[in-house]
């Protein structure tokens, strides 16, 4: 005896009803799971899972390239053999859990301004500290404001509409989403109209 539950709280009572069924795993192959939600779909899965194309191809662990996760190795040092080292062209921040710079690194965006100072501060602390990560998160926010100001002076101001691609929300919206936008738009226009009307009424009243 197992219990059949109806899980869909939108359509059904949550009170359990009892019914007699076999094991869930035994029943599954016949598509008769004992407790499926009405939204639980089995349609794509064949009754016998062994019929699925490729089933069990990697059942033998020997066929699993990441099993076990580690290969045996004789390398005992963290860096291993290193022949060449990249030379930095800009300031590279470095975790204090590294003894020095790594043989290669990225130089995507050099630190700058106040955000750079915050990053300097953050990298004084280890990766296990909240101060390190939260200061970096703060620096990221400061960087956004700094870059907005700097780029505006350079003649490349931020274009929020284009950078956020708001037009895509309309261009790619389905019928339901467009209808929702229409309702929101109508509600916004209605609110504006009510606001204007009320302001005129009050203005007339004051006169």
């Amino acid at each position: 005896m197992t219990i059949r539950y109806e899980e869909d709280h939108r359509q059904h009572s949550t009170r359990p009803t009892r019914t007699t069924v076999d094991s869930a795993h035994a029943k599954r192959t016949r598509g008769e799971d004992p407790a499926p939600s009405p939204h639980h779909e089995f349609n794509g899965v064949p009754a016998n899972y062994r019929e699925i194309n490729g089933w069990g191809a990697d059942l033998d662990p020997k066929n699993r390239p990441s099993f076990p996760m580690e290969y045996p190795s004789d390398v005992k040092t963290a860096r291993g053999p290193v022949k060449h080292w990249q030379q930095p062209h800009t300031k590279i921040h470095q975790s204090n859990e590294h003894p020095g710079l790594t043989p290669v690194f990225g130089e995507a965006v050099p630190p700058h301004g106040l955000s750079g100072l915050l990053r300097d501060y953050a990298y004084q602390y280890g990766e296990g500290t909240t101060r390190h990560w939260m200061t970096l998160m703060l620096a990221d926010r400061v960087d956004i404001v700094e870059s907005m100001v700097v780029d505006a002076f350079r003649g490349r101001p931020d274009n929020y509409v284009k950078e956020k691609a708001w037009s895509a929300k309309i261009k790619y919206a389905d019928a339901e989403q467009r209808r929702r936008y229409l309702y929101y738009g109508a509600a916004a226009l209605g609110a504006i109209a009510v606001g204007i009307t009320l302001s005129r009424v009050f203005a007339d009243h004051e006169d």
């Binding site: 290969y71 190795s73 004789d74 390398v75 291993g80 290193v82 859990e97 790594t102 690194f105």
Partner: peptide, 15 residues
């Protein structure tokens, strides 16, 4: 060298 290519120690100075 142990196959942990997602954990390379030589490519990320920041962490």
């Amino acid at each position: 060298s142990r196959g942990l290519y997602g954990n390379c120690h030589n490519t990320n100075p920041n962490a």
